[in-house]
């Protein structure tokens, strides 16, 4: 078996705070192959962003304890030196953030911001960097790239700014692109443009993409595989078609049935997940979802509160839940499917 392009094994990220240790990510494993997109779905505090900052080596080591392994193209990253990580960031791994306005410097022209990364990693001259910036702006579909390269971020609209961010992230042709809620701040029509653009660029260059989002619709449109996170753990994983088509974990059911859809029946109340997400300082023992789950009795008395259910290590569609496969199938087809 070949080693995957990016492999994360048993990743743990913990922060020490005044109130106690926050277990933001706890035993997370996943792979991403070149040319594919992994969607990571979860609510606030589920550990999606923390995972990505760990891949980029952006956590402050003074407050953060990182365990497990992150291997990118055969290289171990959790023990890499700050200097090594610096060479990697922007070059092999790049990131797009949610809010383009706060992630771009208001004082510098977009051309200079795009070119800076390129000069740092390739040693190109100012002139070359500027040409490269124009080429990148053209690639992300900004009209009149040659004149807009000298504009400042405030002269662009929200959607265009997000394109500038993408140009900046892709300037060194990274092998892995991490997109953290790249379209959450955008309107739907602009969101559709940006998602299409990312797809086109991936088809051209074979970049691996991690798409972090809370929107299952965005995942359905862009991802090949999906990982559902809850309280710092992966609770379901698999091909998009399988996870969204025949979900197996009660939390995934909850996410899907609490979302109104354009074609769902109206006048039927939504089915929210009861309660609130747990504190990451005192994560419930056993399955972290059990206090909000409706099926703990069915799985067997005490089982969900006892040992923590593991996500099956093999590839393909897997979930971390004590219900038997037959129970999950029956519950899904009889109780959940019609509500979606």
């Amino acid at each position: 078996m070949t080693t995957p392009f990016l492999s994360v094994r048993d990743l743990t990220v913990a922060f020490g705070t005044e109130d106690g240790v926050v277990h933001a990510v706890d035993g997370l494993s996943f792979d991403v192959e070149k040319g594919t997109t992994l969607g990571i779905v979860g609510e606030s505090g589920s550990g999606k962003s923390v995972t990505n900052l760990a891949i980029l080596g952006l956590h402050d080591p003074a407050y953060t304890k990182i365990g497990g392994e992150i291997t990118l193209d055969g290289r171990e990253l959790t023990r890499a030196s700050p200097r090594e990580m610096e060479r990697l960031r922007g070059n092999k791994v790049a990131m797009i953030f949610q809010d383009p306005l706060t992630s771009l410097s208001p004082y510098h022209t977009v051309g200079r911001q795009i070119g800076e990364t390129f000069r740092k990693h390739t040693g190109a001259s100012r002139r070359e960097a500027r040409d490269r910036a124009i080429e990148m702006l053209r690639r992300v579909g900004i009209p009149h790239a040659a004149s807009r390269v000298d504009d400042h971020p405030h002269q662009f609209s929200g959607g265009m700014r997000q394109r500038v961010m993408i140009a900046m992230a892709l300037v060194c042709d990274p092998d892995l692109l991490i997109a953290d809620e790249p379209t959450t701040a955008l309107d739907v029509t602009v969101q559709a443009q940006i998602l299409d653009l990312l797809k086109e660029l991936q088809d051209q260059s074979g970049t691996a993409i991690i798409m972090v989002t809370h929107d299952l619709g965005v995942v359905a449109r862009t991802a090949h595989e999906v990982l559902v996170m809850y309280a710092g753990r992966a609770i379901e994983r698999g091909a998009v078609r399988e996870v969204l088509g025949t979900p197996r974990h009660p939390y995934t059911w909850g996410l899907l049935s609490s979302m109104p859809k354009l074609r769902s029946p109206v006048d039927v109340p939504l089915v929210p997940v009861r309660g609130t997400p747990p504190s990451l300082i005192n994560v419930p023992p056993g399955c972290p979802f059990h206090p909000r789950c409706d099926y703990t009795e069915l799985a067997g008395p005490g089982l969900c509160r006892g040992e923590r259910p593991e996500l099956a290590p093999h590839r393909g569609h897997g979930d971390a839940c004590y219900l038997t496969p037959a129970q999950k199938r029956t519950i899904f087809t009889e109780q959940i499917k019609d509500k979606l």
Binding site: V188, T189, Q191, A192, L195, D215, L216, G217, V218, V219, A220, R221, V240, R241, L244, G245, L256, M259, K261, L262, L340
Partner: peptide, 11 residues
């Protein structure tokens, strides 16, 4: 607008 809304139905 309606056609731009991403659908969760993978099909």
């Amino acid at each position: 607008l309606l056609s731009a809304v991403p659908d969760t139905d993978p099909d």
